[in-house]
Design a protein around this nucleic acid. Structure first.
Lengths: 193, 193
DNA sequence: AAAAACCCTTGAACCAGATTAAGGGTTCTG
DNA sequence: CAGAACCCTTAATCTGGTTCAAGGGTTTTT
């Protein structure tokens, strides 16, 4: 049941986890199901969970002061769905996390999560590498948002995430890319499919 | 000489470093000076250094396919100046890092940097927390760039980095915020100073 | 002390992308 | 199987921000 998570962690480590470390994981992560449209986290609540997606798909989004939604991230199989700021800082979340499909996650509570860090240095290593990769990706996304046109960002999205293009609605992709759905529709008309 | 770095690391740890860990740092980080306008890293070179800024100021920027510069980050006292992607992935850097003032940094080579990780778990912890904070900040910046107007982004910058406003030229701040210097000038005319 | 290099400003013309509004198709759900 | 809830498209209008071009001030270098 925990195989995908163990595998994912080991892929980022030079030396795979030993049995005690793997047990620490399997003891603390529990499988939980979410139905399509169900919320894993709602803005205002304090996020005390970290969730590894086993199957399905979530979107992470914020609502701005004009009531507009902005999709920050899509989390699919073998990705993490969380509001990192809220999980670590123990503040009410500004983000919403909604299941876009029926989904299954392996979930851990903040307290148990801190136990992992305090007893097994290997998790500092794994989550360091993950956070570094996430930061590098976020930097690149910011560069694209400052230097690419809407059309270039859409073409880049298709090239980068071909498996998401037919899985997530265009309106949600438009929001992720920082443009209106109407404008994305116009782009699609001009640039074949 | 290494005091600011040791202090910075300890501030992010629950338990301060022990003498062996502190020695591991002081043995591996060397002080290096940069003159104003000197480059710490140029795009195309492979970045093999990580630099902790002791005094002075750097900008991290990329040049897009139209030849336009985009400032990604300013690194001042007690901050890090590096291209994380290039340092870890050992690929030629896409980023430039230029001293905006005469500056001093504590610098470590990639090889010695990996020795820290391999011998002292505390550095996985410290850089995990750093990377997580950087990622959280990058996410928030992306949200602002999608939901704020240019004027709101400038007001937010002043509130967030008052110490940088009179230290860095407006043209460089405009690039950091994703707008032209002409437009920032227009904003400043309307919104007092 | 002149030359060179920045740096900020102003204004006119322009444009990428937003807004508003409307219509039609498809897929959920009770 | 009917209504509700999405989802995508099209077109007209509008606007925040860019581009281009020019001028003047201040700092740095020689």
């Amino acid at each position: 049941m925990h195989a995908p998570l163990l595998k994912h962690i080991n892929q980022f480590l030079l030396k795979p986890m030993d049995p005690a470390e793997e047990k620490a994981v399997t003891d603390r992560f529990a499988l939980k199901a979410y139905r399509k449209r169900q919320y894993l986290l709602q803005a205002g609540d304090s996020s005390s969970k970290n969730s590894f997606v086993v199957s399905g798909c979530f979107r992470v989004y914020v609502v701005d002061t004009n009531g507009k939604e902005h999709n920050l991230q899509f989390a699919v199989e073998n990705g993490w769905a969380l509001d990192m700021g809220s999980l670590y800082k123990e503040e009410p979340s500004e983000m919403n996390i909604e299941a876009l499909e029926d989904s299954a996650v392996l979930q851990i509570e903040r307290k148990a999560f801190y136990e992992l860090y305090d007893n097994f240095p290997v998790f500092d290593r794994y989550f360091r590498i993950l956070a570094e990769n996430a930061y590098i990706a976020a930097q690149k996304r910011l560069i694209r948002s400052h230097s690419f046109t809407a059309e270039e960002r859409y073409a880049d999205f298709i090239a980068r995430y071909p498996h998401l293009v037919n899985r997530i609605s265009d309106a949600k992709i438009a929001s992720f890319l920082g443009m209106t759905p109407e404008f994305l529709s116009k782009l699609r008309r001009n640039f074949g499919k």
